[in-house]
Design a protein around this nucleic acid. Structure first.
Lengths: 179, 179
DNA sequence: GGCGCCATGTAAACCGTTACATGATTCA
DNA sequence: TGAATCATGTAACGGTTTACATGGCGCC
């Protein structure tokens, strides 16, 4: 369900074909490993069937015709619904980044909401990590303490950086006048 | 294939039942969303069939008997092989954290290797991000620049924190005398 | 009386990847 | 000659979640 709406969100930025979309996503390979055509095309077909997008078949010389998809009004609504529903804390970073990439579709208030949602998730995360790390460090007998500690330390370092970024961004958003 | 070896790695720390394992993983839910019984049990069955683990069925009063799994010598070998083979850059943070959690099974040198592998991946990541961000910031015409920038900034903040942690840890490991 | 814990297990559904097919064109 | 780009699509396979089943015991 996540690729479906992410694709829809990309179409909200601008109409494009499945091939275009793949190209585009390959450039941001670092976050969300690029979906394959095998999942991309069927997802676009499904969006079409549900009338969240329309196609415009453009002949392309000798090459196979390009099918350029555009989002419909129903599509915009569906996208809003998806963006506004709270995202899984466990799908975590990836799910959040997807939403960040679709931030154009958000009002300033909704964007702030989104960041705050993430903030509270990461903060909860961090608290749990701290507690666990404390109890691990105090069971000196445990031979596996090293590895547990390592992962926890890493998690804490990342959480700290995330929180710092989120706080900075939230402050920027609340202080700057509207674009 | 990743749950298979992660489960094996946990059994290398100490013998446990499938139920125990789930409990244990639920506590570290923050990193690796806990696998369900539906995938956990079949994986354990497969490990057993391949003779990488053995079972010890312990009757448990009126409750269903507990099946406590222990790793075999062949299991230890298989685990080493898996740990030593390079991990996917795209499975990324999660795959790396799994290995960190199994750090007990690594020699100091192998642990350093593992961290360095991650370091170079994250550094490559970061470089790509910086380049992309640069080109995005310079196409002022693009209406979707905001969202693209946001995701990139976030990625960079996390990458920076990861690199800092990795460097610190690598230094600790190289300076400290062996445990 | 219903819910949750203990503890195992299986089948169906889900969503993704891998690998294939088409077919013309351009580059080494 | 062989490979890559363009552009779409389908089928098989893989691993996971979801949802179910069993069955006794304790809690409110």
């Amino acid at each position: 369900m996540t690729l479906r709406y992410f694709a829809l969100g990309l179409l909200a930025q601008q109409p494009m074909s499945g091939y275009d979309m793949k190209q585009f996503l390959e450039n941001l390979d670092w976050l969300i490993s690029t979906p394959s055509f095998g999942s991309l095309y069927p997802n676009l077909h499904a969006l079409l069937k549900d009338e969240l997008v329309t196609v415009n078949v453009m002949r392309n010389g000798d090459n196979p015709p390009r099918k350029v998809y555009s989002i419909t009004d129903a599509g915009h609504e569906a996208l809003q619904d998806w963006i506004n529903e709270p995202f899984d804390p466990d799908a975590s970073l990836r799910g959040f980044l997807m939403r960040l990439m679709l931030a154009n579709n958000l009002s300033r208030a909704d964007l702030i909401d989104c960041l705050q949602q993430r903030r509270s998730q990461v903060a909860a995360h961090q608290l749990q990590l701290k507690e666990e790390k404390f109890s691990i460090d105090n069971e000196e007998d445990d031979s596996s303490a090293l590895s547990k500690s390592l992962a926890h330390e890493y998690g804490l370092a990342v959480a700290k950086a995330e929180l710092a970024w989120l706080d900075r961004k939230l402050q920027e958003l609340s202080s700057t006048t509207r674009h």
